[in-house]
Structures are given as structure tokens and as C-alpha cells.
Design a protein around this nucleic acid. Sequence first.
DNA 1: CGATCTTACGGGATTCGTAAACATA
DNA 2: TATGTTTACGAATCCCGTAAGATCG
Lengths: 313, 313
Amino acid sequence: MSINLSTRELRAFVALAQQRNFTRAAARCHLSQSAFSALIKGLEEHVGGRLFDRTTRQVELTVEGETFLHAALRLLKDAESAVADVRDHVARKRGRVALAVLPSLAAGWLPPLLAQFHRSYPGIELDVADVLSDVCITRVRSGQADLAIAATRGDAPELRTLPFCTDAFHVVCHRDHPLAQGSGPVQLGELAPYPHIHLARSSSVRQYVDMALYPHTLQTFLELEQLSTVAAMVKENLGVSIVPSLTLFHFADAHLHARPIRAAGLKRRLFLIHRADRTLSSAAQGMLDLLMQHKPGPIPGRPATRKTAASRS
Amino acid sequence: MSINLSTRELRAFVALAQQRNFTRAAARCHLSQSAFSALIKGLEEHVGGRLFDRTTRQVELTVEGETFLHAALRLLKDAESAVADVRDHVARKRGRVALAVLPSLAAGWLPPLLAQFHRSYPGIELDVADVLSDVCITRVRSGQADLAIAATRGDAPELRTLPFCTDAFHVVCHRDHPLAQGSGPVQLGELAPYPHIHLARSSSVRQYVDMALYPHTLQTFLELEQLSTVAAMVKENLGVSIVPSLTLFHFADAHLHARPIRAAGLKRRLFLIHRADRTLSSAAQGMLDLLMQHKPGPIPGRPATRKTAASRS
DNA sequence: CGATCTTACGGGATTCGTAAACATA
DNA sequence: TATGTTTACGAATCCCGTAAGATCG
């Protein structure tokens, strides 16, 4: 019933249809003329009818062969492009990688890495969602993202969570603020007296700080959505703000001052998350390798140089 | 470089992609599990990358495999339909036959045969050109028609001409005309005294008659294009007309009378013509067989019953 | 430990190439 | 007769199935 048909047969058929000569077509297929003849004969039996009219002097397509020629050409083209597609994807000449990354990393640390990735694999489409941790994880679970970098572990069984890096906190203030006197680390307790400006959406920062200060609390003066707004407010000396060290690039301004906070355990851990039940595409694996090689170092804004690559076998 | 890919491999791939289990997929392909495993392995080497992630417990498509699955499904469908196309054409379930037939035959003798052909092969499209001999032959030479029935031989080397039948001539006149006295054959000489109505376009008739009468000639009274007009004129008793016997059905009328003409060599020969350098399509061969089996007999309007079939091996 | 995929290996079918037979212009 | 296709046949290759090995849950 359902027959077997190979691209070799199709190529032989097309060669003969074009050359109209067994000997030349056989040579083009790197076959002896007799093997080629047998191959065509077999193909004709497969498809169930003669495809060529042949005398010793002339080889011509039959009407049926002519209709088959069109199909054969298209099949060959499609088959070759299908295989080329797979090869291109494996070779990272084509493909797509979708990332879900915390906004703090997405704006500061990620861009140069994406640029590097794009230089290496210019054919790969990139899709970055700069979203908060739980959305990052949701995206990976649903398959919308291949990789996520989030501040929480992915606890679903189908997810794999790799420790990525740790992020400390800095306090930022106006250069005229009392805290701007020194440039070294400050104790968390020193911050209590001052009005604070918080980033509402990244409530995880708030939780970390509250936990570390307990039973003391900070004076919340203002809650904002955007880090850049926080920076503007601090620049007006309306208060100080505790921010993840990786977001300090938002506060690179002559009127602002930043100091690291020294407090036991006051740091957040970031994780790289992907699905465990589906291997990463070749392109996504390449992205993972690159990200792991360039984890943010302990000093924000200065990439670590030691290699901690995880490579596919 | 260019690889070999067979529908067997594709079917195996699709089976595994759907079953996600080597053992079951192997069974579906009527293969041992080990042979199936090797086949998939070979396919993966062919396309140049892993298509499945497999542990002993789970078999899943890789991202690359998923893109390949779409292509594989389409390739299989196309390949099967291509083969089915050829088989349908060979089995005369589909196809097309183009005929070029003299108008005399096309209107009277051909229609019931086409009806019979269509009953036998309802999927075959038919194209009939009712044109004069030289156009018939031109159409076959140019490939516009598969078969022609014409009054002249096709003398080009790429044409094959089969004797088809001979056609005598009748004289038709009004029932009140002197010639209507008898019903048996008339001598050609008996016609000379009467004014004649000729069919201008089928000048071959004229040539035959002139040749047979030489050195005498007929009194040409009127030249017309359409046989039906000739019939109408004769019905008004404006003259008599010599027409090929096969066209007598145009003159089946109570007011008209027809008598065969007896004259040595006064008959035209009809030929069936097709290209010799291209075999007929299966459908056209079927048509040829049918036509040859039902050649018009010596008495017009009554199909011959003896079989003179020419069959393909 | 059980289910499942992979590897090893002998036997069998397929396919190849050389050479002779055959066909057509 | 010369060119080109088909047939014949031994040899190499490929593919299949059985059985043992490896791996994951």
C-alpha cells in the first residue's frame, strides 16, 4: 500500500528527465549505468507506471512522468530545505531564543551580552521579556521563554533551577545627604533615621530589608514604580533608597551618591531557570553558556572574569 | 553534501514523534525495536542533529525535531499524493484526452463513443476539436491533441498514421427530384445534368468528385459552409449535393432522399493519427482502443461490430 | 528491579559494478 | 555498425532481528 520513496530515487528520476540519457544521468548520480537503469526500473514499479518512453536512441518522459516531474522537483526542494532548516538551527544559523529576565538585569547587565550573542549568531532572533520574577517563571513553564533569570527558585518539578549569582544592596542618596559623607559600607541601622523611597513593584527588596532590620522598620516616604523615577526623587534629596546593587547604573549621576550596605544575609540570590523536561534548543543552549560565562560579579557593573561555563556535551 | 532521505525514515520519525515511545512506534512501522532505533539514529545523523530527547522513560521531540515534524508531515503527504497522481493517471481515474476530429465524425459518430468512454472513465477530461484535416494534424504535431481522425495522412516523421476507415459518398436531393426515383446506387455520370450545392470548406470532397468525373465537371450552383445549411437548401429543391456518407445524419428528413454513388475509387480514406515519438497517455491509449473498436462501418450510421482493437501490451 | 533504549553480531535481502546480450538508427 | 539500454551474475553493502548490555525511574 504505502510505498517507499527516497530522495535518491527522485534525484535519479530528475536527472534522467533532464538529461534524457541513461549514461549521462547515471554519471551525474555517481552510479554505473546498469545500477541506474535498475533504479529507474524500481522507481517505475514503485509508482505503478512507466515514467519514461525509451528506445536505445531516445529517452522521453511519458505524460505520467511529466506530471510526476513537477512533484518530484518540489519534493526534492522541500526535503532539502527541511534538512537545511534542522542543520541551520543546530548550527545556530537560524532560530530564536526567548528570555525572561528581571528588569534590573535586562537594562544593565544584559544588553552587551545580547550584542555579543548577536555578533556570534546573527541569524538567531532574540526575544527578551523584562518582567518580575514570578512572570519570568510563568513564562518558562508555559514555554513562552526558553530561559529565565529570576530572584526566586522555580519550584515546579518540570523546571530546573541553577544558582546564578547573588546581588547585594546599595543605599543611594543625594550628595548633600548626611549619608554621603563616607564612601565605604554602611550598617543597615544607620539608615533607619531617614525617609525612604521604595520601588513598589520589586517588593522582594522590601522583604529582604524588613527581614534584616526586624524588629525595626524603615520610614517609608514614597513608593514608586520606575527606578528612573526613584533616581529623580533622590536627586531632589527627597529621601534615600535601598536598591539592588545590579541596578546602580540607574543612579550614575554627579548629584547622587551610593554606598554598599553591610548586613549579614542582606543579599538576594538570582537563579537561572529552564524547563527540565525539554532540552534547550541549540541556540538557547548557546545563550545559556554565554550567560553563565558572564555572570555578574560581586562588584556591580563589572563582569566577572573567571569562567564558570556550563557546556553541553 | 546532499543527503538521502526516504519516506520510510519520515514515517518512522512521525510515528515516534506521535507515539513518543520506541517500542510502540517500531510496532507501528512493522520493525523490530532495535532496527527502529538504528533507523532513527541514522536519520538523526542524516539531518545533522538530534531530533529526540530520550531517556529510558521518556521520548520527546527537541525543538529542532519539532520544526522537522511539520516538514516531515508535509513531505509525506506530498510524496503520497504525487505517487497517487501517477497511479490515478495510469488507472485512468484521472487525466485528459484531447481529440481533433473531422466535423463529420465529431457530430455523428463520435458522441456515443465519448459517452461510453466517459461511463468507463468518469474522471478523464475530454477535449474535442471538430476541425478540418490539416488542423487536426497540426494539433497532433503541436501536442494540442493526443489523437486525430483526419482525411489525410500525417506525413511528418514524428507522426504515426493508422488507416482508420473509408467513407463513400452519397448524393442527397429533394424527394421530388428526378434522382429520387430510385433508391439504389447512382452512377456518377447521372449527376452531371443537375445543379450542385457544395460544401465549400471540405474541399476534399470536391477534389475527389472532380477527379472521378474528369474530364467532365459538375454545375456548381451554390457553395456553403455548414452542412445543415446545405440540407436546408436541398430541402428547398434548389439543387443536389454530394456529401460524405458519414455526414448523412444531417439529411435525415422526410423531404430528402439520399442515394449512394457508385464510382470506382470515389471514396475518401480516413486516418487515425498520433505522435510516434511520445507514447500516448494511458487515458489516450484507452480512447484509441475504443475508437479502433468502433470504426464506422461501410454503411454509415451503423457502427461496425467486428473487433479490430489495438491494445497496449 | 522493571521497563525501555542502545549496542553487538550473524544471516539475509538489496544494490552495486563488470560484462555480455540486445535493440535501434 | 555504432551507440545506448537491458539482462546476468558475483561481490560488497546495507538492513533486519535476536540477544545481551546499559540506563533511568
